[in-house]
């Protein structure tokens, strides 16, 4: 194993133990590791964006295009818009940065509106509605139960969030059922969250035991 790999493994083990030490109680090692992580993440993000996006997508096509390729002058516009964002730091001309922000916000609002409507609201509503039409193709009881759970769940939760009528009588009953569905879904989400967090712990423990301490089966990192 070369020196770089050994050093990286020891550093990784040190910072892992620093972070895990928080489980006992807050301490300077944890805070140190936390600060280093925040700093390294920011540095990584800036360097990565500069090297992988800024240079190949802006600098090369605009300033150093390959031989025989014309300069892409259109890129001057995003370059200027990008620079304008930094006028926020000069009080007198700070307002100019709003032009860039307006274009940025406008673009993402436009994309998002279509995306949410066409890619989320409509297809998922359609799937719920069409569930009944698919019932003819069901081959077992489980599919019927699944259909009922989805349709009853969607309707009762919608009633729960319908505040234009008082939640009394039949509406109150359905609304209460909606709360039960919400609670079950929160429980499922919580279960999955634990699974996710335990997975991260497993990754660290395997790293410490197999890679750092070299106990058990080693192999390709």
């Amino acid at each position: 194993m070369d020196f770089g790999t050994v050093a990286a493994t020891w550093l990784g083990a040190f910072f892992t133990l620093c972070i895990l030490s928080f489980l006992y109680k807050d301490n300077p090692f944890f805070r140190f590791a936390e600060s280093v992580f925040a700093g390294v993440s920011m540095g990584y993000y800036i360097g990565n964006t500069f090297g992988q996006t800024f240079v190949p997508n802006l600098v090369h096509p605009l300033f150093t295009p390959p031989a025989g390729t014309p300069r892409e002058w259109i890129l001057v516009i995003p370059l200027l818009l990008g620079f304008l964002l930094y006028t926020r730091y000069i009080k007198k001309v700070a307002w100019v940065s709003r032009f860039s922000l307006a274009i940025y916000v406008g673009y993402y609002t436009g994309v998002n509106m279509m995306q949410k409507l066409q890619g989320e609201v409509l297809p998922q509503s359609a799937d719920t509605i069409l569930s009944f039409w698919r019932a003819g193709t069901f081959t077992n009881v489980g599919e019927w139960i699944s259909l009922l759970v989805v349709v009853v769940g969607v309707l009762s939760v919608l009633v729960y969030f319908f505040f234009s009528a008082e939640h009394k009588g039949a509406i109150g009953g359905v609304s209460r059922l909606g709360i039960w569905f919400l609670m079950v879904s929160f429980g499922a989400a919580f279960g999955y969250t634990i699974m996710g967090r335990i997975s991260i712990l497993i990754g660290r423990v395997i790293f410490l035991i197999n890679q750092w301490l070299g106990i058990g089966n080693g192999g390709v990192a």
């Binding site: 712990l201 395997i206 790293f207 197999n210 390709v220």
Partner: peptide
Amino acid sequence: TDSFIYNAGKGWDVQSVVY
């Protein structure tokens, strides 16, 4: 896959016990 220090099968063992 077995030659990797970490793989999903190995993680799943631990996950099941911890869970």
